[in-house]
């Protein structure tokens, strides 16, 4: 007896969507923290650190996310770590996030007028306070729309977890499509769930961007 795609099946997809959200938030939090370090390194006064971070960003922006995930998933065991798919995915997606957010935030940091930095330095404020109390709060505003857009990309990127076997939204869809033989309805529903997760963020980002542009 073949199951029909009905309400219960839809709830199964929602169950999967929960892991999509959890994975996205995990990667965004860890990747955001790393990304801040990347952005600070990318704007530091030491040339070697800037070059190092630029290379790091270039590597992640020049290779497919799927390959990055495979690389972490197959590479970590060689270093002697036994990793399950959750750990591998969180690490892989976080590194990916850190490179992209690092580049976005580098742009925002550089968009803050340099006089702010110089004035703070002239007042004898140290690097950390200068960054965290003067420059970054202003950069945050500038970088917010692009950061939210990246979060949407990250949520879409977590769909790749399905290819490594984590039962998030897309994988739930694959399983359900195999059970019900109704791929059109199932993938349609999966797409709609992603859509309703992402569209508020997209809308938010566009709105903030408009407001920032109006203020300028």
């Amino acid at each position: 007896m073949i199951r029909q795609f009905g309400w219960g099946e839809f709830l199964f997809l929602l169950e999967g969507a929960r892991w999509t959200v959890v994975l996205s938030l995990l990667a965004f939090t860890v990747g955001g923290a790393l990304g801040l370090a990347v952005a600070l390194g990318r704007t530091s006064k030491w040339a070697w650190l800037r070059i190092l971070m630029a290379t790091y960003i270039q590597i992640f922006q020049g290779t497919p996310l799927l390959i990055q995930l495979f690389f972490v998933y197959f590479g970590l065991p060689l270093l002697g770590f036994k990793v399950d798919v959750w750990v591998a995915l969180t690490i892989g997606l976080s590194l990916h996030t850190s490179a992209f957010l690092g580049e976005i935030w580098r742009g925002s940091i550089q968009a803050v007028p340099n006089g702010q930095n110089e004035a703070a330095a002239a007042l004898g404020i140290g690097y950390l306070h200068r960054m965290f109390d003067v420059v970054l709060p202003q950069a945050f505003r500038i970088g917010l729309p692009a950061t939210i857009s990246f979060l949407v990309n990250l949520i879409k990127g977590t769909a790749l977890a399905a290819l490594l076997g984590l039962t998030e939204l897309t994988r739930s869809g694959q399983l359900m499509a195999n059970i019900t033989f109704q791929p059109l309805q199932v993938y349609g529903a999966v797409a709609l769930i992603y859509f309703f997760i992402c569209i508020p963020l997209t809308y938010c980002s566009a709105r903030i961007e408009r407001r920032l542009n109006a203020a300028r």
């Binding site: 949407v152 879409k156 990127g157 769909a159 790749l160 399905a162 290819l163 897309t170 869809g173 694959q174 499509a177 109704q182 791929p183 059109l184 993938y187 349609g188 999966v190 797409a191 992603y194 859509f195 992402c198 569209i199 997209t202």
Partner: peptide, 23 residues
């Protein structure tokens, strides 16, 4: 535009590859 930009390309290709035969 919004539908495409707010759904993963992986799901889009699954939709095309597995879903279209149903049509």
């Amino acid at each position: 535009i919004e539908l495409i930009r707010n759904t993963p390309i992986l799901v889009q290709v699954f939709f095309v590859f597995f879903g279209m035969p149903a049509l």
